[in-house]
């Protein structure tokens, strides 16, 4: 991330004192990138809204755990990341129950896209996906979760590799490798001219 402005640090300091105005301004700066990050990870708009709200609430409650004011953005995204992990765990448990109940119905491959991805594949979406940007978005959605999260963090907030490593709780080398694979996958599908 670029160097943090002094006014930003003042906002974080005011937020530590539970200043509503400071919190509003701070979160406003990051809310859309954070929401996009969560939405692209969980591939579910309403769940992403709930998770974003929980992330904001957790940030307010646990601001005292933020060690360095400059690291507010990576810290906020790490809370969002943890919310996504919790969401996946809940989903996994729910899916396991549904699978058990519908054991007789053997339709659907194990390695295919998740239930949310299948739901979103209506004919209209497929048609739009033929356009350049939609093709890119679809391809981002198809990236493996581990690659998708590092790609989104790098893209949306321009976090450094160290910051991404702290957010996703992985070594920097692993983050670098995941980012490389994500970029290669996207590059092989898309032409730069469409986004230049």
């Amino acid at each position: 991330m670029p160097p943090v402005a002094e006014s930003y640090l003042l906002l974080v300091q005011a937020a530590r004192k539970q200043d509503m105005g400071a919190w509003n301004r701070l979160l406003k700066q990051h809310e859309m990138p954070l929401f996009v990050y969560i939405a692209e990870l969980v591939q579910d708009r309403s769940a992403a809204l709930d998770l974003a709200q929980e992330t904001f609430a957790d940030a307010v409650r646990h601001i005292h755990t933020l060690r360095s004011d400059e690291k507010f953005a990576p810290w906020l995204f790490s809370i969002g990341h943890q919310q996504c992990i919790r969401h996946w765990r809940r989903k996994k448990r729910e899916n396991a129950i549904i699978d058990r109940e519908a054991a007789a119905d053997a339709a659907g491959g194990v390695d295919g896209p998740g239930p949310e991805a299948i739901e979103s594949e209506d004919p209209r979406t497929t048609l739009i996906k033929k356009e350049g940007e939609s093709e890119f978005l679809a391809q981002v959605g198809r990236l493996p979760e581990l690659q998708r999260e590092v790609f989104l963090l790098r893209t949306l907030e321009d976090f450094s590799l160290q910051e991404i490593a702290a957010i996703v709780d992985a070594p920097v080398g692993t983050v670098k490798s995941r980012l490389h694979h994500a970029t290669v996958s996207l590059r092989s599908m898309l032409r730069c001219s469409r986004f230049g």
Binding site: M32, P33, V36, E54, F136, D158, T183, C192, F195, G196
Partner: peptide, 30 residues
């Protein structure tokens, strides 16, 4: 390569219709 800033703009634009809902979520949380 895909320019990162352009990719971010595409992603943000794709979710722009949720901006009001996100703002409301932020206000409720606060």
């Amino acid at each position: 390569c895909i320019p990162m800033k352009t990719a971010a703009a595409v992603l943000l634009a794709h979710h722009s219709q949720s901006a009001d809902a996100v703002e409301s979520a932020r206000r409720t949380a606060l």
